[in-house]
Write a protein that binds this DNA or RNA. Structure first.
Lengths: 126, 126
DNA sequence: CAACCAAGTGAGAAGGGTTCTCACTTACTC
DNA sequence: GAGTAAGTGAGAACCCTTCTCACTTGGTTG
């Protein structure tokens, strides 16, 4: 419990991180799996999930879910997104409108964070 | 396409709606299934899902997902919730902090709504 | 450097949530 | 009351995710 847990450095995990770095938006595990395997060096789907879980625990990636599958992206300092209802793409928002937790909303509820999503349609899906 | 679609009035759907009305928080399909069947008149799980889908399309219920399962609740005028990371319960927020969509966040993205969730731990889970 | 071992990997099975299929029933309309 | 589009139930099917188990590998220690 001394800060974020360190994960072991393997070629598979490095490939997964590279995909996330070049993605520009949040991806599902299957999308990551497909992109990682593009150069012929496939990585097992179970490994993708394990690595993403380890990254999430270590604070390297953040997760978000809409509809069926969970989407993963590199963790940044904000937690807000634009979500396209047409194609499901997640785009991080540069500036967080920073909503304040309403005081006394529910007795005894301790707010530790928030998640704000603007729903709509991206340029391609309109 | 003339406003919200009307759904047919059946005893099963009436029971599902009654469960949602008396729930006080968002429920998973399986929880609804269990509660509907409490008085011995079980309703098929597929029917639960179909009814919930029809209700959602008609605008009667709203859906929200965290972790594995999707949660359903009666649609109200707001879209914000308190989410307990311990037990997964969803509680609607009376007052919506009403975040404004940031202008020019992503070229061509048309914002049609938002979803704001305050994450934390309820009184029981702290 | 060699040995050790905890962590990671791959393939497939398993598990849980959701949707589909198909024959049957029922609510609404004319 | 008859016709028909919508809804229902049971179980199979489907998809996403996690688990299992034998094997490999990264990083550390002697």
């Amino acid at each position: 419990m001394t800060g974020p847990r360190r994960t072991r450095d393997t070629t598979q995990r490095r490939r997964i991180l590279r995909v996330l770095q070049t993605a520009g938006c949040h991806l599902t595990a299957r999308e990551i799996h497909r992109r990682v395997g593009r150069d012929g060096h496939a990585v097992g789907l179970a490994t993708i999930y394990r690595a993403l879980g380890a990254f999430a625990r270590a604070g390297l990636v953040e997760t978000a879910s809409i509809g069926g599958a969970v989407r993963y992206g590199l963790a940044t300092e904000h937690h807000d997104h634009l979500v396209c209802l047409g194609c499901g793409r997640w785009q991080p928002l540069d500036r967080c409108p920073a909503p304040r937790a309403p005081r006394g909303a529910a007795a005894g509820f301790r707010v530790t964070g928030h998640r704000l999503e603007f729903l709509g349609y991206c340029a391609r899906c309109r």
